[in-house]
């Protein structure tokens, strides 16, 4: 019937930055459509009765790596190309960090690289740079894929990430660099906000280098697919204007979505091999 024509979730892939920042006036929320990632999703043609909730990028626990060796192979085996994040990126040196260590924000608000927690099987960070070509400065992007032992473990890790900017408004990265003023939001897929995976977290703030006059914008995304998290950081060029920063953020978020879509596909294939139907595996990702 015409009246039940589905209205497409036009902004489903858009990143919505709503709400006030720490220094904002309450109630004066800002709603900015900051662009969409690659739309490899089938969400464009749902049947009227189909629920978009089933469309999250996810990974069933049963299809996820079980051992540290499997997890290390999994994170290394993912295809992550520099141009996922936009034109002009290349690998940094060193390119990979992990998979036996990860970074932890201490009680003292200092980030340190530590051995993996017992609930984590592997964590691999890949680093990229878009070299300075126009005098505005380089852009740095990192992508970290972490395999947890369980969905619950990954959920707890997302909660930890949301807690970090609340307990540490200034986070020291090393002797001279820190991030500060981070505001965050976490969007479970089933709330129909902007999430593309089971749970999407986004944080925005400043990256400060001692001695530099001007802070750079800093973005942090972390998407959860069942027991796996995919996080990205973006350190913007110091001289970029707002439009350029928005473009860089959009492109980087697009890169995250290439990776999460790939993990979703791998999981579905894995489930099929194991004789479970793809649909069942998809739905089982979070429950």
């Amino acid at each position: 019937m015409g009246g039940r024509r589905p209205v497409l979730l036009a902004a489903a892939g858009a990143l919505l930055l709503a709400g006030c920042t720490s220094e904002g006036t309450p109630g004066e929320g800002t709603a900015t459509s900051a662009g969409a990632g690659p739309s490899g999703r089938s969400g464009a043609s749902p049947a009227p009765s189909a629920s978009a909730v089933n469309d999250a990028y996810t990974l069933a626990e049963s299809a996820a790596p079980r051992t540290r060796a499997q997890a290390a192979a999994f994170v290394r085996g993912l295809t992550v190309r520099p141009d996922f994040f936009g034109p002009g990126y290349r690998k940094r040196d060193p390119y990979e960090t992990g998979p036996g260590t990860w970074t932890v924000l201490g009680e003292d608000c200092v980030w340190r690289r530590e051995p993996l927690a017992g609930t984590v099987l592997a964590s691999l960070t890949r680093s990229f740079v878009r070299p300075d070509t126009d005098g505005k400065g380089p852009v740095f992007v990192s992508l970290t894929v972490t395999v947890h032992t369980s969905v619950v473990g990954a959920r707890r890790d997302m909660a930890v990430s949301l807690e970090e900017p609340l307990r540490c408004p200034r986070q020291q990265l090393n002797a001279t660099e820190r991030v500060q003023g981070m505001t965050s939001r976490g969007d479970p897929y089933d709330e129909q906000r902007t999430a593309t995976s089971d749970d999407d977290l986004a944080e925005f703030g400043e990256y400060v280098v001692d001695g530099d006059g001007k802070p750079r914008r800093f973005d942090w995304f972390k998407h959860r697919l069942g027991p796996v998290t995919v996080a990205a950081t973006v350190r913007h060029a110091v001289g970029a204007d707002e439009a350029e920063k928005t473009k860089v953020t959009q492109d980087a978020l697009g890169g995250v979505t290439f990776v999460t879509a790939d993990i979703d596909r791998l999981g579905a294939e894995q489930a099929k091999k194991a004789g479970v139907s793809g649909d069942a595996a998809e739905g089982a990702g979070d429950e």
Binding site: C20, L166, R167, P169, R185, D187, E191
Partner: peptide
């Protein structure tokens, strides 16, 4: 749901940064 974080995130910063109190925030996984 996300409304909890909407409210709590602002509460933490207002309590601590605007009104000068101390906060110990905890985010609990769903």
């Amino acid at each position: 749901g996300s409304a909890m974080h909407d409210q709590g995130g602002v509460l933490v910063t207002q309590w601590r940064d605007t009104f000068g109190g101390e906060v110990v925030p905890r985010v609990v996984a769903e």
